[in-house]
Design a protein around this nucleic acid. Structure first.
Lengths: 131, 131
DNA sequence: CTGGATCCTGCTCGATACTG
DNA sequence: CAGTATCGAGCAGGATCCAG
């Protein structure tokens, strides 16, 4: 199993904040949850094109440990039903992320214009194209 | 030699901005340059405790390619003299970084209080202790 | 449906030696 | 002084199969 380790050489609030949002899938998960609110596991996997289960579950677990997201288990007898959403803690971080996103929007242009705009944060995401 | 590759699956302004500031040494170099203005290579190496020349030079080269920093060569005949400073481009990013830093300051407490505060950005840095 | 267990690849980071 | 060349280790990230 994957386990993130050795991030304890963080010595500065800026580094700390960056460590929460760096990583290949972290910001993408945040963006999906921010867009859709409360989302099922399979929905997240579908939105993040080309992520494997092993990597996605490790990412979610890591974000749970960091208290960035919240897990809701709705056991419907035989069919496991799990949903994730942003934590209140994470929501206090969003304004800073939107600052970053706004800056990026000025200086970054997508190489693939066919990818739709993220519905709420106003940035191009790597979401699946609409069918 | 090291060469950063494969960061071309970035599809969103937020990811783009994050990619510029993630990496083990990037934010630390930014912090040093922001604190001191224009800084010599050896000064940067001294501030970033425990960084090797190979890694530092690769980091600086990468940041040059991203237009985050500017290199000034003051060739004094036999003694090479090189200085680095933040680019104007990077300076437009600073407000967003300070948002992140401010947020981090609320939620992050250093494990080593003996490390002095960064002079300008108001965060604990991994700077060398004063002798 | 929601992941856990395994195995694997290649990048990131580092130590050391060397140079104009 | 300001790097480059080379070698190497460890971890982030990935593929695939399997299980409650």
């Amino acid at each position: 199993m994957y386990q993130k380790k050795k991030q304890e050489d963080i010595r500065c609030p800026l580094e700390y904040a960056i460590s929460l949002i760096s990583g290949k899938w972290n910001s993408r998960v945040l963006c999906v949850l921010h867009t859709y609110g409360t989302v099922r596991y399979s929905k997240i996997r579908d939105e993040l094109v080309s992520v494997s289960d092993a990597v996605l579950s490790a990412t979610l677990k890591e974000m749970l440990n960091k208290n960035l997201i919240v897990k809701h288990v709705l056991s419907t007898e035989l069919t496991p039903h799990v949903e994730y959403s942003l934590s209140d803690y994470c929501k206090t971080l969003l304004p800073a992320l939107q600052e970053l996103c706004k800056w990026g929007g000025v200086h970054f242009t997508s190489h693939d214009e066919s990818i739709p705009l993220c519905k709420r944060c106003g940035c191009n995401t790597n979401m699946k194209k609409e069918p």
